[in-house]
């Protein structure tokens, strides 16, 4: 079972007294794209925020059960080290407004006080931007502010920023929900390309997006895991009637 990079075991999480996620058991395959879908409020975002321990930033966050990353509990791993291995991209593009494109890409190094030579940084910037399909568009403007880019470019910059620290896993939290169709298509292409280097967990409310880019699909409903399997199986022959209802658009 070496191919399972993240294992979620009897895991529940929520806020205050309420569990938003209930008793989830799930594994994510290495170098695959796994889509998590479900109607809004089903706990998709909470789930991936637990994987890199961002959920705990809420003061009243609660959880029980365990999440294993490379066989080790994430809750026994220093969150700072954990987040360097598990990158994240958010719904809205959020490049740091005070930093140039160049500095945004290496922000993971700068913010953690890691000093490399100019040459090494140059290489990382070029490599990461190339991985994010952004290099050609920005290579002459590396020292302009990232916020002057278009929304789609900004989101790819955020992907480059996450990729620059060489993570094993990339969490994408509805990365195209704020983008136009053209920019969305580009990100989707990028996701397929990126799985060569990283494991991708993609939260999406867009059913066809899950079908287009993912290898595996997880369907969550009201905090419970309804169905999990290869994307093809889920979309062609779902076992659970709820999954089918969701896929044909009966709710959410």
């Amino acid at each position: 079972m070496e191919s399972e990079i993240i294992k979620i075991r009897d895991f529940s999480a929520g806020y205050g007294q309420n569990f938003v996620l209930k008793n989830i058991n799930l594994s994510f395959e290495k170098n695959k794209v796994t889509a998590i879908m479900g109607p809004s409020g089903c706990g998709k975002s909470t789930l991936i925020r637990c994987i890199n321990r961002m959920h705990e930033l809420n003061l009243d966050a609660i959880h029980k059960g365990d999440i294993l990353f490379n066989g080790k509990s994430v809750f026994e791993t220093n969150p700072i080290l954990l987040r360097k291995k598990i990158g994240m991209v958010f719904q809205r593009p959020n490049p740091f407004p005070t930093m140039s494109i160049y500095d945004n890409v290496i922000a993971g190094y700068r913010l953690n006080g890691i000093k490399l030579s100019k040459k090494e940084f140059d290489l990382i910037v070029e490599d990461s931007l190339k991985k994010a399909f952004l290099w050609e568009e920005v290579k002459d403007n590396l020292h302009k502010k990232g916020t002057f880019l278009s929304g789609g470019q900004q989101q790819r910059l955020c992907i480059a920023r996450a990729m620059a620290v060489n993570p094993d896993v990339l969490l994408l939290d509805e990365p195209t929900s704020a983008l136009d169709p053209k920019a969305t298509a580009m990100i989707e292409e990028l996701i397929v390309e990126l799985k060569k280097t990283v494991t991708i967990i993609l939260v999406t409310h867009n059913r066809t997006q899950a079908a287009r880019v993912s290898d595996f699909t997880v369907f969550l409903y009201l905090g419970e895991l309804i169905e999990y399997g290869s994307t093809e199986t889920i979309f062609t022959t779902p076992k659970n009637p709820k999954t089918e209802e969701y896929l044909i658009g009966k709710f959410g």
């Binding site: 890199n52 700072i80 360097k84």
Partner: peptide, 20 residues
């Protein structure tokens, strides 16, 4: 979301406030 981006890169609270 700017803070989240910083935390997600592994930065601590102090760094997030002062650098972002």
């Amino acid at each position: 979301t700017l803070r989240e981006a910083s935390y997600a890169l592994g930065a601590d609270y102090f760094t997030t406030i002062f650098k972002v």
